[in-house]
Every structure is written in C-alpha cells, then in structure tokens.
Nucleic acid binder design. Structure first.
Lengths: 360, 360
DNA sequence: CGATCTTATGTATACGTATTCATCCTTGCA
DNA sequence: TGCAAGGATGAATACGTATACATAAGATCG
C-alpha cells in the first residue's frame, strides 16, 4: 500500500490551478469577493469546494498582521468568572472573533502565561482581575494590542477598563438595608486587598454612615463558598448578632447562609443577608438571595468592544473607562415579615426574565 | 513631532543584526537552545532583551505546521460545562498549549463555528457534547488534527472519545437506592435524545430491574435548574410519590429539590433524591446531594492527552476510547433516618478533600 | 600529521496568503 | 474612430520564522 498518508494540504495555489486563475484571484475571492467577476467567482468556489479547500488563517494572520483572536486572562475558579467567560466567548463569536482563554490559579502564573500569550499577536487582551506589573503593561501596549482591564478598578486610568459600579452597587444594597431599619451591619469581604472588595465596602460604609449606621468589616479570606461557610462560625460566636450581613460576593454569601444554619440562624428571620454579583444561583429558590446583579453580558460586550473594536486607537490620551451600573435584586434573604425559609406554599423566584438555555 | 507611532515590530532579523549573528542562529536560540554555543546564546539573549524581541508564534506556526493551540467546542450554559472548561484550560496550560474556546447555544451554531475554527489549523479539537455531521467529521480528520469527543458516548468508535462511565455510575446510584429499600423509583432525565441521558437511564433501569424494582422515565426537557424546578410540579401532582427520584444531572436535581419544597416535600424525609455530575455545589451544605462525582480533572487530562498528546497517530485503526469511572458521593438527600433538612446542629458536608482555591 | 568526525554557524528556501503594481480588456464618449 | 476611464486579473513580493544543506573550525585518532 502506498503511503499517501501525508497528503499536502490544499492551498489557494491548488485552487487557482484547478480553476484556471491566479492565486491572487483566489485570495480576493475569499477576502473581497465584490471585486472579482461573478462567473470567475463561481468557478473558484466550485474548485475550492471540490478540492476541499480551507483558507489558512495562520498565513492570513501573518500577512495581514491581524489574528482575529482576542485573549482573556481569567481566574480559574469561582462561579462568577465561569459565567463571565461564557459571555466573552459568545460576544466574540458574534463578532467573528475567536477567544484564547487562560485560566490562572495564582497571580504568579499570570506573568509566565503572559509571556506565552504575547507571542500570538492577539488583536486584544482582556485582563480579568489580574494584577500585572506596570512595566509589563507598558511593554504590551507598545506592541499595538488593545488591553482591557475587566473588573479591576485600580487599572482604570492606566489601561482601558470595564467594571460594574461597585461603590454605587454596594451603596444601593446598603440603602436597602437602612430602609428596612437595620442599625448594626456587618460587612463580610472576600479579600481585603482586592480593589473590588475595597470599593464595595467603601460604598456600603459611606451610605450607612450617612444614615447614622455603623458598619464593621470582616474578611472571609477568599471569594469562595468555603470561606463564607467558615466565616459563619465567627459570626455565630459574636456576642450579639448584627441586623444584617452584607457579603462581598454571592458565592461567599451562599456559604454564609449555609453556615449560619448550623447555628439555627436563618435569613431573613434572624439576620438579613445580601450578596453581590447576581449569579444565576442567587435566583434559585434554595437561596433566593438579595444581591446586586452585575449586567454580565453588557460588561462583556463593552470589554469585547474595547478589545476587538475596529476603532482601535491605542494612542488615546484618555483610556476609556466604562462603568456600568448594576441592578438590585430583592430576594427572600432581606424580606422582612417572613420568618422561616422554604415553608410550604411560599412561592419564590419567578424572576420573570425568560432565559434561553441549551441542552447538555 | 515625528510620527514614529508605527514602529515596525522587532523581528529575529533585527536581533540577529544586533547580536552579530545570522537569523538562523537566533531562531535556533529560541527553539533548540542546546545546539547553540553558550557565549553566542548570551549575546543573542542580551540583544533580544535590549530590543524587546518577542518571537512571533504566527510565523512559527506557519513554518512548523503546528500551532500549539487546542480548540474546545463546549455548550455555552450549564454549571457542569463551565467547570470542565476550567480544567481544559489548566491542563493545556500545563502542557504549554493554548486553548481556543467556542461556546455554543444551539447545535446549528456549531457547524458555522467549525468552519471558522478549521481555518486556524489547530493541533487538536475537543468536541464536548456536540453533534457533528459525520461528513464534516471525516473532512476534519483528514486535515490531520486530532479530534476528541468529550462526554459524547455515541461518538466512540468513530472518533477518539473520553467519557465518564455513565451506565456504571447510574448503576451504582441505583444500587445505593436499592440497598436503602426503595421499591418505586422515578428517573428524571434532562433531554431524552442525549446519549448521556440514555446511558444513565439504561444503567439505572438495568440495575433496578435486577432487584425487581420498576423504574419510570420522565423528561425534564433540559439540563437546567429551571427544568428541574418545573418538573417538581409534575412530581408533586402524581397520585403517589415514588420512594426515590434519580435525576440525570446535579443542576436539574437542585431545581427538583427546591421545587419539591414548594409542596412541603423534602429529601430525604419524603423522597430520596440523587443527582449526577458531582458539581462543587453538590457538596454545599444547602443541598448536600447524593450524586455520582465525575472525575472532571482526570477526564480533562485524558481529553487533552488525546488532543494534544505528542503521540499523534491519527491513522490508528481503533480510535482510543477512554471511559473513566466516577465515584459515589453519599449526601444528605439519601440519608435515611434524618427527616428534616438543615436542622440546628446537623453537621453537613465535611467532604474531606482540601481544595485549593484562588482569590477573586 | 593528514583524514575523519563533531560542532557551531551561515545561506537559502519554503510555509500560504494579502496586496501593490502593472497589464489587458471592455466600455463610454467626443 | 480614437482615446480615456474603469474593471478584472496576473505577476511579484513580503509577512517572520524554521530547517535542510553547506561550510568552517576544532577535536579525535590512526
């Protein structure tokens, strides 16, 4: 048997030969079809089809200096980020772009990874919640790729940035609690060093202070369920329970709710609880959490626009900084009057929005 | 001011000139450093550093015919898939590969997307739960990229495949229920047309039948929380409640648990409930679901190995088909003896495994 | 000490496409 | 009829790198 295994790939030259035209015309036929004569186009398309020709995006990118690929550097864990990645992917696909994804566990991985990323000459790069050395940032901008900081308020001013209005969102939650008559509020942050965490606490403390309410800060140690669950122990052993616990993220809030139950404490009966992010699970009847919903799709759209938009002008003096407002979701966990969760007949959720979802 | 904005990118030729060597030696210095003399290497590295040289992976790929990029086509929604994507990313990064991600909502998008994907000459492609036309599959294999079907048992035999042992897993869950004395079991599938769904039901029904237990099938309509929540209505309006409900996926099971609560029904008091997948949330105290844990990291590792492994031999007569066994997680939802969920002092979870998690 | 082998480097080319420039043909208009 | 303008196509080149081949200089060995 002849070893014809390694059949050379079909190129535009082959198609040109088969169609009786030049390679240049074949190339035009796939990039700017309007400049090639209709009958010629048909001939070429027929030949391409017959030979099974697939344009080579690598070669195209090399020549045109555009890869049509946008990268995203995203934390490897956390429900919130998994959500956001999905939106990135969808938005980019809608624009005919591809998504190169990097998950990182530790910040140190980021810098290594970035070295590898830079070799791919991406059109844009979305940095989600990652701390990059400023020197490296500068180096990256020089290469002409458009950087976007996602959910990393600190980066605004240095790099184009997209983020939800953390401070205003926390403020809105705080006002909601104040309206319900809370006078002693505990803020449970994830990681105090995170800029989002600080912004949220700032918004909460400011608004509460303006109504004469004191707001203490406690750190969970991570933005995870487990951290919230463990933090509940510390809350449970406090001398006196606060009226409300504002938690810095939904996932931590879930852990807090479950953790509190170990001590026989439930929301909203014994203490009010709020979250932040607006994860899909916040709408699940099991939690039905009051939270600030981040418009994840809109945030992703903005990030993609900045990273892959055709208005690429990296020489902008003022890096555009997009801040989008979130919306308050009033759930069971701050509903005064109810005492016990999940009683028979208590109709939760029905959050109205009809979400399309695909099969597994 | 001089418009020196568009500074040409620095190439290996520039580095060669600066270091006083040929371009070929610079290239060798970055691909096979061991063949270049130590002092020469130092000169080159110094020059590259000084000029800020970054190798161009696009050009490299064009010449070497390897992109070092592996693609993954994954459903856009579902907690399970978001999890799996994270593992793909991590495993690939560990191997020095990049991940090109495609999320799809509808199966139709897949075929369009695939056209675009094929242009990028990926080294491998992981098809997660997507139904591809066989003709297209064949065309894709011809191009020399290694395809892997992930969690799509039907594809085994046609394409290298990686999947959890759905049938054995469901069987194990069924035996667990039988051991607890269940005699009337309802199986709530997601989408009856899905091959995973059928395999799981088959495993459950077979094992239950062998112990003389009848197992009815009900379809939720989607692998989503909402579908499970709505299915609970149908369960609640049954003439008589089954002893146990085997749900085809954790996410659907969460919806079922929350939905049942509307009717004052809880697990394990009124009915036992099991899931499938082993999502992180199954371990959360709020649900503490009995389920079959898919070894997602191991599955991802196998998929990556097949898609990006250096043992690329696409001419294999027998496409390797990896089936990995899951492990049973016994949660509160099948714990006989307990009547009410979340009572004070009931210590849930403690699932032992110490998971590392990063900050937000 | 010359012949052979090894090692390090330079030369030249190819990867597959986009694009500039030139060329040819068609058409419109005076 | 002649000439300019426009439209379609071909020829040639460049994108930045990897690699086969050739070559020069040491190293090894009889």
């Amino acid at each position: 048997m002849v070893r014809s295994d390694r059949k050379r790939a079909v190129t535009s030259v082959d198609v040109a030969a088969a169609a009786g035209v030049s390679q240049a015309t074949v190339a035009r036929c796939f990039t700017t079809p309007e400049v090639v004569a209709p009958d010629t186009r048909l001939k070429i398309e027929a030949a391409a089809d017959r030979l099974g020709y697939v344009p080579n995006a690598i070669a195209r990118s090399l020549k045109s200096q555009r890869t049509n690929i946008v990268g995203a550097v995203v934390p490897a864990v956390g429900e919130y980020w998994q959500n956001v990645v999905t939106y990135f992917s969808r938005r980019l696909t809608a624009r005919g772009r591809q998504l190169l994804l990097f998950s990182f566990l530790d910040q140190e991985e980021v810098n290594e990874t970035l070295e590898a990323v830079m070799q791919y000459r991406l059109d844009g790069l979305i940095l989600a919640s990652a701390t990059i050395a400023e020197a490296q940032l500068a180096r990256m901008r020089q290469t002409g790729l458009s950087l976007v900081a996602f959910n990393h308020p600190d980066a605004a001013g240095i790099v184009p940035s997209v983020t939800v209005d953390n401070e205003a969102g926390a403020s809105e939650l705080a006002r909601h609690l104040a309206d319900l008559g809370c006078t002693r509020v505990l803020y449970l942050g994830g990681v105090a060093a995170a800029s989002t965490d600080r912004a949220r606490f700032r918004g909460a403390a400011r608004t509460l202070a303006s109504t004469g309410v004191r707001c203490n800060y406690m750190e969970a140690g991570a933005f995870t369920y487990e951290a919230g669950y463990r933090a509940a122990e510390r809350v449970g052993s406090l001398d006196s329970l606060p009226d409300a616990i504002m938690v810095g993220s939904d996932e931590v809030a879930f852990g807090m709710l479950d953790g509190l139950r170990r001590y026989g404490l439930t929301a909203p009966g014994d203490v009010l609880v709020t979250g932040f992010d607006g994860l899909p699970q916040a709408g699940w009847a099991g939690y039905d959490l009051t939270t600030l919903v981040q418009p994840a799709d809109r945030l992703a759209e903005h990030a993609v626009e900045l990273a892959a938009g055709d208005t690429a002008d990296p020489s902008d003096a003022q890096p555009p900084s997009v801040v989008v407002a979130g919306t308050l979701r009033r759930g069971l966990t701050t509903r005064k009057g109810d005492t016990e969760q999940g009683g028979p007949g208590s109709l939760p959720s029905h959050n109205g929005s009809t979400e399309r979802r695909a099969g597994q």
